[in-house]
Amino acid sequence: MLEVKNLSVHLGDFALRDINIKVEKGEYFVLAGPSGSGKSILLESIAGIYRHQCSGTVHLDGADISHEPLRQRRIGLVFQDNTLFPHLTVRRNIEFSLRLNINNDRDVKSKLSELSGRFLLDDLLHRSVTTLSGGEIQRVLLARTLASDPKIILLDEPLTGVDSLQKDLLKRHLRALHRSGLTILHVTHDFDEAYSLADRMAVMHQGRLLHTAAPEAMLSRPADKFIARFCGHKNFFQAQAFNGERLVLENKIELKLKNDLLRQSLVSTLIDARKINYSKLKPSTGDNIFEGKILDVFRSPLGQELLIDIGIPISVIIDESLSHPSSQQIDKAVWIEIPQEAVKLINRV
């Protein structure tokens, strides 16, 4: 369907390097990454905006469109910022797009009513686009983009700046579009958003594509520290295993464990922050007990979260019902115990 090969773009100080993506027909593909990683530029390059600054190729349905101008690509791009035409009403915005592709007034009308019904825009059609909310803007943008009959749509942060109720509605619209067979390439900085929508996803960082996988695999087997952090894992460490029973995290912290993977020498390690035991007093018995200093303490939906320096910084989440340290206890000495079941080892790829 869409195939991007060795795409590089140089724009001033920023560069996209050697990007390769393949999106299958009918697939919902999400490109995730923090702000500034080059996601928007990648989408805009695929749509044809930077075609004079690009090297590499873009194929759509097998045809090389790398040199085709924006208007001929049949790639519908929903920009991150509001690109509704401010001098036109909602209806005129959608019609602008329809009339470029359909000559017959009756067809324009029927397509307009179909789109407006689909995106719940009937009450908004007469409105000026300058009075719409974030969610309404996105719905009109989606309708206007679909009106141009694209082969694939590219969505640039469609849920950013939208309140949570509207967000759920928009996600439903997006899933319905996906179910109707539309191919979607969606860009977001939010892992949860990617996880809830994607068939497959890729993570981008500093102009490079790091890793492509199904969302479940991305979450359960993060390929590196950056991806682990991006997926929301608190404690991801590179580790070295010795003699099938010892594991050294980041060359600093040694754990005693029983795990088949310890026969490999290099593994990645995830430690579940909720399963780490925390104590203000030194526990009398047990393995894997470390003394540390509290670096930070804050509230999280799962409880109270502590960042503790035990030689490496490690996050611990404790139930709020426990007597928890107040912020005055920053820099105080505490103890943690890392039980066997908190540790998950991942084969390094």
Binding site: A47, R71, T83, S97
Partner: peptide, 15 residues
Amino acid sequence: VPERLEHAAQNLGAK
């Protein structure tokens, strides 16, 4: 006039 709006119009198929 934001150039984005022109790009958006082109993207919809406008000459």
